[in-house]
Simulated scan of single mutants.
Amino acid sequence: MSNRTERYQKLCLEESLSRIYQYPIACKELSFILRGAYANLPKPLQSLVFQHTLTAIRLLPEMQTGSAVAAAHFLLQSAEAAFPKQKKSLVVTEFKQAKVAHKRRSKAHREEKGPSQLPQDVLVHIFCLLDLQSLISAGLVCRSWTLAANDNHLWELQYTIFFGRSNNSSRTKTQWSGKSVNKDYTFWEENVITRTDIDWKETFKRAYGGDIAGIAT
């Protein structure tokens, strides 16, 4: 396995794409890779990036947040700029099908839950204002609130409030060498990229050293 492939796999993008609240981050990581490094990657790694791009597009119907849809659009634009004609055509076709499926699922979800149901990204934004006890209590209300209350960024915020900034912070240094996307993001040079493989709720639990469910009672 090449050094670049090994480092790419350490990003855990495929696993992150399947998690609702890590999906936007993983899509953006793929987008930056496509825009800044894809053309210079070895063929096996190009194939892996292409497969992960298709996976991201196909998972779009399962995502419930506006940020996920926006990230998927950004990924599509990056794919159109990076992939050769045949691969680009396949990605565009998959995206159109995924958008139709997403709209149908969103409509069915709204009809099932009723007009009072807030979008997931709105709930997450509201929950970021809660203290730990209130956040845990909110997560016990219903399935929709449970999903929002388990947002990875909310628990990173709680970790920072309780224990300070961790060495496992969601932005971490990684060694790469290559082409710059823009002045703020260089994928293959030493740069700052987003870690998508840290489960901050579990990290908080380990640091807290107790049953956090009891905090809500």
Rank of each mutant, 00 (worst) to 15 (best):
Y159G: 02
T146Y: 03
S78F: 15
R105G: 00
E202I: 03
E14I: 09
S47H: 12
H153E: 11
E15P: 08
K10S: 10
F187W: 06
K205F: 00
K96A: 06
F204C: 00
S134C: 06
R143C: 04
W155A: 03
R143I: 08
Y185Q: 15
E190D: 14
K43D: 12
K205L: 00
T186P: 05
A79R: 03
I126S: 05
N3I: 11
R58I: 14
E111V: 13
A71V: 09
M63Y: 14
S16R: 08
Q9V: 13
C128H: 04
T196D: 00
V192T: 15
S78M: 14
G114A: 03
E80V: 06
G36H: 11
L130T: 04
D184R: 14
Q46F: 12
L130P: 01
K87Y: 07
I126C: 06
N182G: 03
G214P: 00
S106Q: 08
Q158L: 08
Q64H: 13
I161D: 06
E6M: 09
V122Y: 03
E202H: 06
N40C: 10
S116F: 04
L90F: 02
Q46W: 06
K99F: 04
Q175D: 12
F204D: 03
D131P: 00
V69T: 12
A71T: 09
S31R: 11
S144E: 11
G114R: 01
I215A: 04
G66E: 13
A138Q: 00
S2C: 15
R171F: 12
S16N: 06
V100L: 08
S134W: 04
A81G: 08
W155I: 03
A56L: 13
S47F: 12
D184T: 13
F32E: 08
R7A: 08
V122S: 01
T217S: 13
L34K: 09
L154E: 01
Y185N: 12
H73K: 09
D211Q: 00
Y185S: 14
E190A: 15
L140M: 10
T146W: 06
A108T: 00
S116G: 00
E189K: 12
D211M: 00
L118P: 03
T146E: 10
H153S: 07
W155M: 01
V122Q: 09
N182F: 07
Q117C: 04
T203C: 10
M1D: 15
S16Y: 10
P24M: 04
F83P: 05
R35E: 11
V69I: 15
A71N: 06
A81H: 15
R4V: 13
S67Q: 14
V192G: 05
R110E: 14
S31N: 07
Y185K: 14
D184I: 15
